[in-house]
Write a protein that binds this DNA or RNA. Structure first.
Lengths: 293, 293, 293
DNA sequence: ATAGGTTTTGTCAAGCTTTTGTACAT
DNA sequence: ATGTACAAAAGCTTGACAAAACCTAT
């Protein structure tokens, strides 16, 4: 606790990636940091200052003006970062794992409640649920989890994510139609993508697993969405539906996610690939659509 | 209410299918509409005007002279169809149907909210959701609903039911392990059965669609439930897994639900059939288990 | 409320997809937005402005004239859209407060629906409803909330919680008899406790506010519950009924909740105090009963 | 239905100011 | 380390303009 590591401006600059001049400018103009001074007048920064600078940069990356970013970053640190019960995503995933192994649905729910209360939806998806699903998808190579537990976990998570999805068709943002291609029954990643889009203002029409491309086309023709997204864990799915995809892409903007999406997208015309994780791709796609308007 | 949507003539024309010139002619000749005017003199039509134009067209199609048609259509609108506070299940299903056809997720949720506020879970399941699913399952013989809308509806309902299922693994009651056999992906009926059990105090472990019988056995061996339930819409599923079912029934009490469940249960030993609707069967099974205690 | 994210026009443009020039034109011509200004005169937009712009665009897409679209979009935001998917408990309580002050029952229900869909019942009770009631009581003391508003909030919340309580006497778990002592009319905390118990599998018999201890004893003698719970906000209630409580505790396990419960429990024999919040106490009591089984 | 004039609305430009990262002199 | 300077980026106001939509009258 008492071991206070005080950094000088050069070290803070190196750790934060912000030039010393700029750090001084932020201090002078916005009072972002209030470093102590050495007897010789050198700035000495405490451990929270680095976190403040990181928040400043995050807000700038979000598009806020420097003055606004600083006003937000200079405020008190939210409890999550302040120190007490900072549970790492890794620890959370292990807790989830234990709860699933015990078929303890209530504990799973409680853990998710905790994450949701302490952080954002993005964090829940990117750092907890999706990595956890990745483990699931890899067949639990350590052999500690049975198929039964995998089914159980899927069910509970699907319920939770669909709960967060309530009302996601409502509003005024751009529309997206989401579906998995025929034969693909793993829709949790797509669900997460839908939630990440929703958090960015989109309206979602969700068709779920195992949907024929013609069916997707019907919905797209009816709704005229800004984006149609198909996602599959299994890269085999794409080749069988290449022709139908092309027909769809002729009338709508179509994106492909999941394994093999890049290859499948390159094999066609006017197909957008979503190779990265759902949250990142939601961010990217949103920027893209906003720019196109 | 200040929130009145005023349309200009072009939009009214688009929505009514009547050319702007004709709309103006009807106004001049018969006084069919009395639009407000913008400061610049443009016509601004209120929400009732569209209805008036539709009535005008209907009367014309019925063979009335334009002057007569206008005289009828210009009259006051009959009291809106709004109102009826106590809604019959049939009306609710039609409302649900309309909302699904429009891909209006929010409306679906609102309708379900209303049912849940006014009645019990049993009513929601037995009289609304399950009959509605039945219609879905019959392929919407009237041809008014596409596969896309069926997928959409399944998704929304699954989310809703899973939301009601939260915490259903917790408590003191008898345990049930629920799953659909391999190849069966329609799990909404099973979900409804689980909820009906939960409302009667059971603890539920839900494995969901497409679960190998061996996987069900794993879970059952781990949890030692009072009851294991497999359900399938597709009666074909049972024969392929008859042997595995017998092995399971040797160690646990096993019940089969859905189409062909009676035949499948009679073909084996110690298999309980659940032929009636999920709510009724939940009641029966509960009585059975209580008696056995 | 220092943590308000203010956007400059460029960022609002990027997020909404509307050019800065057009945003300024909409402001000048229709007063769509009323941004604050920086000291230098730059426009600074609040978080609701983005939603307003989205609504404007939607109305335009629906065919409304810009002037009409703006008139609709400039109005107050409906509760459902105001918040993004996941909101902090603090923000939720503020929203609830606003809805109650406006006597807007539908908005209250919508807010509660959202919490219930996104989180568990425990969260609804522990982090939203109960703190909200606490705030409301204090607001009333300080004269910021009228008695009418408090009554309104109580009745709406009671209706909602009772709706969730449907069927809670059913099942297999341990039984609990719940009541408030004579003179005590605030039963919402007790209701919340009952729901938290129910979520843990208990069967609840609820006698409600202002119940003579003899009446509680009658019910307890008939039902032989694992636990009898009396709760009062007003600590004065206990002394008058100390003797009757002792008689009850001789035949049943009795717990006391609410203000002064600890003192009252210590003043007697075999009385269990429930000093913490209802959810935590429900958890504790359940563990206790499970251990005893 | 057409013609000729008006209103509405999105876009653009010119000239000036504010904001902000970086550089430089002390 | 401090303080000042500077220039690019972003923003402000005013004014104008043209295409689309709409008006009246013939």
């Amino acid at each position: 606790m008492a071991s206070e590591t005080l950094l000088r401006i050069g070290e803070l600059s190196r750790r934060s990636g912000v030039s010393p001049e700029l750090l001084r400018a932020w201090e002078r103009r916005y009072g972002l940091l209030r470093p102590e001074r050495s007897t010789g007048g050198l700035r000495l920064y405490g451990p929270t200052d680095l976190e403040r600078v990181r928040r400043m940069r995050q807000h700038l990356a979000d598009g806020l003006a420097a003055a606004e970013a600083a006003a937000l970053a200079a405020g008190p640190l939210p409890a999550a970062e302040a120190g007490s019960s900072v549970v790492s995503p890794v620890a959370l995933r292990r807790e989830l794992h234990d709860a699933v192994v015990a078929f303890d649905e209530h504990r799973v729910q409680t853990i998710l409640d905790g994450v949701l209360a302490a952080s954002s939806l993005d964090v829940l998806l990117r750092d907890v649920v999706l990595p956890f699903l990745e483990d699931l998808g890899q067949g639990w190579e350590r052999g500690q989890v049975s198929i039964a537990q995998e089914h159980f976990a899927s069910s509970v998570l699907r319920g939770r994510l669909l709960g967060l999805a309530r009302g996601w068709g409502h509003g005024f943002g751009p529309r997206a139609v989401l579906a998995c291609p025929p034969g693909e029954y793993h829709d949790l990643g797509l669900l997460a993508f839908g939630l990440a889009l929703r958090a960015r203002g989109w309206r979602i029409a969700y068709l779920g697993a195992h949907t024929p491309v013609e069916t997707v086309a019907e919905a797209a023709d009816a709704l005229e969405p800004e984006l149609v997204v198909l996602a599959a864990l299994d890269g085999e799915r794409w080749s069988e539906i290449a022709a139908a995809l092309q027909a769809l892409a002729a009338r709508h903007r179509v994106a492909l996610g999941g394994a093999g999406a890049v290859a499948a997208a390159e094999a066609g015309v006017d197909l957008l690939a979503l190779p990265a994780d759902p949250v990142a791709e939601a961010e990217r796609v949103t920027a893209l659509v906003m720019a196109a308007r």
